[in-house]
Amino acid sequence: MSINEAVAAVFEGAGVEGWLHARDVDTGREAGSRAGERVVLASVVKVLIVLEFARQVSAGALDPAERVLVRTGDRLGGWGTAGCVDDVELSLRDLAYFTMTVSDNTAADVLLRRVGPDVVPLLAAELGLHRTRIAGGPRQLLETMFDDVGARDAAEFARLFPALPPERVGALRVFDPARTTSSTPEEMTRLLGLIWRDEAGPPAACGAVRGLMFRQLFATRLAAAFPADVRVAGKTGTLPGHAMEVGVAEYPGGGRYAVAAFVRSGAPRGVLDATLGRAALVAVEGLRDLR
């Protein structure tokens, strides 16, 4: 059985729909399943937002210590500053920290406004990610979800969404790669390879992004699947019925492997997380056998 067939078998065996691409960062060897198909990125797009921030810092265009006041009107709900009750003052670099480590939607939204929302699509194009579509930041994503469901806020969305018929759920823009922020698994591993080889910007900028990805606190997907001595950097994304993560696994004896995995199913979150990680491990171990 080929690596690609083995990955597809993991998805099929778990009863989920899956897309995956794995790439040896140093040799370019690759494997995957449906790796060229467009998928929704959700919070995975935060890698590009923080990369643009780090590039602007390296160029001297932004001071990472610049202070920002996150107010009530900035709140989007969720982790980090997104869930705070009172105004929070912090630096731009701490916004980047919360964006990557706990996937703070408010921090990402405020940071995106500061670096310039029109600049991130230009960055994707500059890096050759021509199938990557940026349709705004977390605020725009949540607004489309609320609008499509007819909810005024997150609480009303949580009440209305479970009762929607399948055809209404499938029609939400946030689940359509053609109408929301999206890319392909192959382009996401290409992005990670550029970051890990210091080719996505100045070495200091790439190093900053790598450092933040290694500090991500969510460890139930890629990190949970690999042996304890493998260092895993990652950035997750989550939507109802969807789980995704992009990251790089660094083996102690050498070898760096970029992985972008996306799964979709009505199965419990634990099943999605475990299947994503298992498929990633199968792909990476297959590539290691080719070394």
Score class of each variant (00 low, 15 high):
Arg291Leu: 14
Ala163Phe: 06
Ala42Glu: 01
Arg71Gly: 03
Ala54Cys: 11
Arg38Leu: 06
Asp153Leu: 04
Leu41Trp: 04
Val44Ile: 09
Gly77Thr: 08
Ala260Tyr: 02
Ser265Thr: 12
Asp26Pro: 00
Pro203His: 00
Phe53His: 10
Leu76Trp: 03
Val119Pro: 07
Gly266Leu: 10
Asp273Leu: 03
Val149Asp: 02
Ser182Lys: 11
Arg190Tyr: 03
Glu245Ser: 09
Ala135Val: 09
Ala6Val: 06
Leu62Ser: 10
Val232Pro: 00
Phe53Thr: 12
Thr189Met: 06
Pro177Thr: 10
Glu52Thr: 06
Thr189Ala: 01
Thr180Arg: 14
Pro138Asp: 13
Glu245Phe: 04
Ser2Pro: 15
Phe218Thr: 14
Arg190Pro: 02
Pro202Leu: 02
Arg291Thr: 11
Leu48Ser: 01
Thr106Ala: 07
Leu51Asp: 09
Arg168Asp: 05
Ala31His: 09
Leu212Trp: 07
Tyr97His: 15
Leu172Met: 14
Val248Thr: 05
Ala154Arg: 14
Gly253Asp: 15
Gly60Trp: 00
Val85Lys: 15
Val39Ser: 07
Thr275Cys: 03
Pro162Ser: 11
Arg269Cys: 08
Gly13Met: 10
Trp19His: 13
Ala124Val: 11
Thr189Asn: 08
Pro117Trp: 00
Gly73Tyr: 11
Val10Arg: 11
Ser33Gln: 15
Ala171Val: 08
Arg210Asn: 01
Leu172Pro: 00
Gly128Asp: 10
Thr72Pro: 04
Arg38Pro: 11
His242Leu: 12
Thr238Arg: 05
Val271Gly: 01
Gly207Leu: 04
Gly270Leu: 00
Val169Ala: 11
Ala283Trp: 02
Arg29Glu: 08
Leu51Arg: 05
Gly80His: 15
Leu141Arg: 10
Gly207His: 01
Val120His: 13
Glu30Tyr: 06
Leu172Gln: 13
